[in-house]
Amino acid sequence: MPLDRVVIEKVGKRYGSERALHGVSLELRGGSMCALLGHNGAGKTTLLGILSTLVRASDGKITYRAGDQAVEGDDVRREIGLLAHASLCYGELTAFENLALVGKLYEVASDRPALTALLDRVGLDVRARDRVARTYSRGMLQRLALARAMLTRPSLVLLDEPFTGLDRGGALQLGEQLGELRATGAIVVVVTHDLEAIAGRTDHVAILQRGRLVFEERRPDDGGGYDYDALKDLYHRHAN
């Protein structure tokens, strides 16, 4: 059941006496890419962790919706695609084996032709596909990670610093692929400091500062995405 809306209501997170998030409220919509910005320690990764169901919120709640229906538990996790700095892939397995494992766990088609088509789409070198992933370069690993995230056709795509370690070309290509995901109606949330890579593709900006949401703005549906200068300006005005 594809998600088309995620409502975050007054979500907070405490680690002992440290407060990582204070009452963050945000609404994420299908076909939209939200850039979650802020300095290190602002609470971006914590919020992403809570959205991914891997971190429990101390306060508030998150509602995942598909149309009028609320979605919970395994059904939410089925809809989440996570792309992080780490590849989430096993170094001792080949690209095909990594994807086949994901296919089995998610119970989606993972036969060789389907996986080949997916790896073609993300541009992973044909000669590398039967090699174990630990022999891959950073760029190849990130392509495999993207294939991994896309295999399950997620409707909520969470990205935590996905451009780290990629060269400019790789970052821009990944940015294009995220734009394509957004165009398919997915909810895309990206945590990044690489504003250039998401420029023109993100239509929703949320800025966190010391765990608080200090700025949120959404461009109208036909308003296009924020360009680099607009993103940079917002970041400097609100994140500091």
């Binding site: 991914s52 169901t53 891997l54 395994d74 059904d75 996790r77 089925r78 989440i80 996570l82 992080a84 780490a86 590849s87 989430l88 892939c89 096993y90 170094g91 994901v102 766990l105 998610y106 991994r148």
Partner: peptide
């Protein structure tokens, strides 16, 4: 430790399985 190297434990816990 092997599940920590590429954060694969996170991937397992995110899968829609019990």
């Amino acid at each position: 430790d092997r599940e920590r190297e590429n954060d694969t434990m996170r991937a397992l816990l995110l899968a829609p399985i019990p």
